[in-house]
Design a binder for these strands. Structure first.
Lengths: 399, 399
DNA sequence: AAAACTTTGTTTATTAAATGGACAAACTAA
DNA sequence: TTAGTTTGTCCATTTAATAAACAAAGTTTT
């Protein structure tokens, strides 16, 4: 554990430039060495040598020649997304979703298991079992499983410890340590909303945004924040406690003990609570209510209208706070997109000024149920590909 | 205007390392070359040569020997804060405050001028005149005036254009271009809350925080956000529109046209509006109300109690959103610190959970009326000292 | 007081990496 | 067929960090 800040030397330069070349290939493939020279402004010789090293490491490969633009035909380069695989696990309140992805985030295997009221021990055992199962499904490759990411519906500290996960009834569970004992590869633990945000940013609706808020609306509300292309976690990892900001002083009681929280009006829980007020809607699930509303039930339609309005008010607050390029609505509520889209948009419009929403996009999640699993997988991939964090010439790792 | 991203080479390394050495001297002076080696982890020879270059550039200087720790006595280094000077201008709603600061942010001259209902032309002329006056007061130095920063109570885009400043009745004023015509040094235009945030971060109560929210409460509310030691401006520079987040759906009407905004309950304007309800308080200014409350007037005391509570509720919302290390309350309301401190704290406590405010500090501005002026001055200084942005060996500029 | 050790700082040879230019290869256009 | 163009590699040059030797100026031990 060095206490020095990072200083700069030739090795650092090379790592950085190599990383930039690799990113360029991942983003713009197929492209030639000459294209990279033009796009990055690096010297021809430098690009040539870095590309050849990356080819040696099997991270990119040549794939025939491209079209001539009046001279020698270029050799096109592709990212080798099969050089290794990552495992992503999304621990939900009543399910575990596991995926195997290639280095481009493409899902090559998945495993869904419903759960119900499990103890910490039972649930972590099930997570382990899921990982073991998925490991067997991973195709043979140069680097094998390069990392495992876990998404948890709770607060996670920087050491990978789950401080509190109310809906799982977890407290102080050192998930990272538990899994590192069993599996010999890097483990990444993240909050579910942060994971979803990162998944959408890398592979989903947020691909083109530099700043984006992912609002995860399920039983509760959490949010993941991407600023300057990076996940912002807050000083203690507690950013995204947005669901508990006050939108009505002295308003409705919230599960957190406070009053008037956004979540108390805009979550699935809030919806079901309102449904209880109508005798013929009492006991209905989110899915039931969607079916009813689709069939034209006026009370159900009204519930979604109200829900959408409150969601929109909260989103307007987020916009005025972060001024993001994009807001993405995800998690379970996504199923009701067609019912809430309009009220959300209307509420955002009526509670913000034109300049405050200039250039803003509001979208629903593209990866649907895979946002979080794909997101944690992306963390593992990034940890592997980020040269600056990878051991220099460690066993099985490219230099 | 290069379209390439920044790649890395030896020149870049040197700039970065030199900048780190300079920062170390600024933060920890007096210190020796050996101390820098220890703190940064750079090689002795590297530090020696970089330090000597910085001495040649007059940015640091030697100052005798320090205490021996069992061997040769070290040569102590100091930052030469008199190598150049910056000018900072805070354009308020009814004043212009100008300061001359040295490179360490120390104020060496100031000029305050009250204004009243001026046209764009009159006000910009007055700003120019203030700058010309301050330029004459700048002591002789190697680099002279290295930049001018201007703080404006409105929205500023990245090109230095004031898009809208409601209280000045400004719209689309290209302040940067206007001033660049007259003054031949770098000009920095910033929003007033952003400037205040940066001022407190560099020289005031926020010196030790990596993430901090500066809440500027005057006639309205604006906020400046520091994340990872840097100012976060949002995708269009509109972050900090926080004053207009909804805290009571369908609540009191706000000047922005919307309803229930935080600002409608927590600003100086809100306070004066409430005072109008009491016949013997009507027409009182903020200063009058403070005097009355200090004299024990129960109605005035109650007004501040209510104001503080609403301020605290809004701050709790900020905390749950950004999870900062610190919140600093600044601008005119600072005068009422002794009256609102307790209600603010109580409201923050009662509307947040212990873990959400873990490690959080809430303070009032330390630089009082100078926050914004010192902040914009700091922008100018940083622009000068940041080697990566300075022209390589430009006229009068160190390499 | 002399010798041995320590800390500070400079100088020099070495090494790593980007750069610029020469060159070869492969193609187009005239 | 010839001249020009684009792509990619190779090599000499340059820059900057590093390691190690060295010098300077102190302290501690004998």
């Amino acid at each position: 554990m060095s206490k020095h800040p990072t200083t700069w030397n030739n090795q650092m330069i090379k790592r950085m430039n190599k990383e930039m070349v690799l990113n360029q290939v991942m983003e713009s493939a197929p492209l030639s060495r000459a294209d990279i020279v033009q796009q990055l402004g690096l010297n021809k010789g430098t690009v040539s040598s870095l590309v050849n090293e990356l080819i040696e490491e099997d991270l990119i490969h040549e794939s025939g020649t491209g079209e001539s633009s009046g001279g020698r035909r270029p050799v096109m380069l592709l990212f080798n997304e099969h050089a290794g695989y990552a495992i992503g696990i999304d621990i939900g309140v009543n399910y575990i979703l596991g995926v195997v992805t290639n280095l481009a985030g493409g899902i090559v295997h998945e495993k869904l298991k419903k759960t119900r009221d499990l103890s910490v021990h039972q649930l972590t055992s099930l997570v382990s079992a899921t990982i073991r199962y998925l490991m067997e499904q991973v195709p043979p490759s140069k680097y094998g499983v390069i990392g495992i990411g876990i998404g948890v519906p709770g607060i996670v500290d920087t050491a990978g410890k789950v401080l509190i996960a109310p809906n799982l009834k977890w407290q102080d569970v050192d998930l990272k340590r538990i899994l590192e004992k069993e599996f010999q590869c890097p483990i990444f633990i993240e909050n579910e909303a942060n994971a979803g945000a990162y998944g959408e940013k890398r592979f989903g609706a947020g691909r083109n945004s530099h700043s984006m808020i992912y609002v995860s609306i399920g039983i509760g509300i959490g949010s993941g924040v991407i600023l300057n292309d990076e996940l912002y976690r807050g000083s203690n990892g507690y950013s995204g406690e947005n669901g508990h900001t006050t939108i009505i002083v002295d308003g409705k009681e919230c599960t957190c003990g406070s009053r008037g929280c956004w979540e108390a009006y805009s979550s699935e829980f809030a919806l079901l609570q309102s449904a209880e007020q109508h005798e013929h809607l009492a006991g209905a699930s989110l899915e039931d209510l969607i079916t009813l509303a689709d069939a034209g039930n006026p009370a159900a339609l009204e519930l979604f209208q109200t829900l959408g309005t409150y969601i929109g008010i909260g989103i307007a607050n987020l916009i005025k706070t972060y001024n993001p390029e994009q807001v993405i609505i995800g998690n379970r509520i996504r199923q009701a997109e067609h019912l809430i889209r309009n009220p959300v948009m209307e509420a955002v419009h009526s509670s913000s000024l034109p300049f405050q929403r200039a250039g803003l996009q509001i979208n629903f999640s593209e990866l649907s149920t895979y946002s979080a699993a794909a997101g944690v997988s992306a963390f593992a991939i990034e940890g592997f590909l980020k040269f600056s964090q990878r051991p220099l010439a460690g066993p099985g790792f490219p230099v």
